[in-house]
């Protein structure tokens, strides 16, 4: 077993681990907004490491390029779809968890009170 195979093992195992971890988080988290963070773990490092592990096993340059392009697409489209989802949920007034704090905006750049009315706007 060469060094490449070892790297591949590590990446694939790591990917499987983070992927499951994110899904477990999806079930453990108390409300919608905290679940979103857990889903992010699966979509970024879970998918990334699995594709990286496959990348090490690619036999032709063409396959390697395709894997890199899939990863690139997932990293661009994932957060875009995610943002669309979060924005829709926010506009719909999905409630934030009870212990959510509204952190004061940076006083130098934001007008005071710019966060008022964030809860359930629209």
């Amino acid at each position: 077993m060469g060094a490449i195979d070892v790297l591949s093992w590590i990446a694939l195992f790591g990917g499987a681990f983070f992927s499951i971890l994110g899904a477990v988080g999806l079930l453990r988290m108390p409300d919608f907004w905290t679940r979103c963070h857990a889903a992010g773990v699966t979509d970024t490092l879970g998918a990334g490491l699995i594709l990286l592990g496959l990348f090490f096993q690619a036999e032709t340059a063409l396959v390697a390029i395709k894997l890199a392009m899939i990863l690139g697409f997932l990293l661009i489209a994932g957060p875009t779809a995610g943002h669309a989802l979060y924005r829709a949920a926010h506009a719909h007034g999905v409630p934030f968890g009870p212990e959510t704090e509204v952190l004061a905006a940076n006083p130098a750049t934001a007008s005071p009170g710019s966060l008022e009315g964030e809860h359930g706007s629209d």
Partner: peptide, 18 residues
């Protein structure tokens, strides 16, 4: 090796279904 990754993906799918 690929089977391990596949198992991970399948478990994730099951949890996502739940």
């Amino acid at each position: 090796m690929f089977a391990a990754a596949m198992a991970g993906v399948l478990v994730t799918m099951a949890l996502a279904l739940v």
